[in-house]
Design a binder for these strands. Structure first.
Length: 286
DNA sequence: AGGTTGACCTGGACGC
DNA sequence: TGCGTCCAGGTCAACC
């Protein structure tokens, strides 16, 4: 594998950042920029994917010190300390194709770069997003970004089960609903349902207690496994021009339409649930 | 109000 | 070769 000539095409390779990928990115950026001061901010000229007014973003970030970078749901959060001593936060959502790169200034700026944070030591944090589904914003002074829903990695079994009580929507759609759980996307929804043996179209409110507990466990297991393995590739994706793939989860069902189930050999089915492609094994999932 | 659908956006895959 | 079409999906707005 040749890392020395990571091309722009490689950079744009679709990766679908969900919770584990976002956590990996946040940890990697944190390790590299924590403690740095943002000297200035460059935002692109076109209508950029901003969640807050450009002027507010510039004003909030300029001169601020990055105290910590972490993840909330699928959002990367930068804890900032401003020069006047107040606290603020920047939020970066990667959308579908977003990247947050820490680069030396002499590395060519990739296409579709929408924001650059110029750090005190000369390096740059670059927000790159070809498909423009990502968003960058700031959180009002002294309020903490908490995201829309519950944190899937730490939610208790009881609270998890309570999320779906009385819901008529398919369990797959409920898992994707960020107001309930934030951070679960299409891949991990399919993979956790497979591991729990539950069909994606089952009504969320009709799942048995035992099934919900199994789903709780399988979701946390698959997310933690992905984070664990993703962590090992941190050094690859933020380096200068380099963007290699994240850890590729060994998918059991996702994107395996027609291929034999790894458990029973039955061909994996593809259907559409909640407007999203959905993959499952009709023999292993009831 | 819960649930569902489609728009947004662009690169890549695929078919002819 | 090149063009057209479709697909991917997180989130939000609009609608039922």
């Amino acid at each position: 594998m040749n890392l020395g000539h990571a091309s722009a095409a490689c950079l744009i390779q679709p990766v679908m950042p969900e919770l584990p990928e976002v956590e990996t990115v946040a940890n990697g950026v944190n390790a590299r920029v924590r403690g740095q001061r943002i000297e200035r901010v460059t935002l692109g000229s076109k209508p950029e994917p901003l969640k807050s007014p450009a002027a507010l973003i510039e004003e909030t970030l300029t001169g601020a010190k990055i105290e910590r970078v972490h993840r909330v749901g699928k959002t990367i959060v930068m804890d900032l300390r401003r020069s006047d001593g107040t606290h603020a936060q920047a939020t970066v959502h990667l959308g579908m194709t977003g990247r947050l790169l820490v680069s030396q200034p002499d590395v060519p700026v990739p296409p579709h770069t929408h924001a650059i944070l110029h750090l005190g030591d000369g390096r740059e944090v670059r927000f790159v997003d070809p498909r423009r589904f990502g968003r960058i914003g700031v959180v009002a002074e002294d309020t903490k970004y908490e995201g829309p829903g519950a944190e899937p990695l730490t939610i208790s079994e009881a609270n998890f089960a309570a999320l779906f009580r009385g819901r008529k929507t398919p369990i797959k759609a409920a898992l994707l609903n960020q107001a309930l759980l934030h951070g679960v996307g299409n891949i991990y929804a399919d993979e956790s349902l497979f591991r729990a043996g539950i069909r994606p179209k089952r009504h969320a409110g009709r799942l048995t207690r035992a099934e919900l507990l199994k789903l709780h466990g399988s979701l946390q297991t698959v997310l933690k496994q992905a984070i664990h393995l993703g962590g090992s590739s941190v050094s690859d994706y933020v380096d200068a021009d380099g963007v290699r793939g994240f850890f590729q989860l060994e998918h059991r069902v996702y994107s395996r339409t027609g291929q034999p189930c790894r458990e029973c050999g039955e061909p994996i089915q593809r259907i559409v649930v909640g407007g999203r492609s959905t993959h499952f094994c009709k023999k292993c999932q009831k």
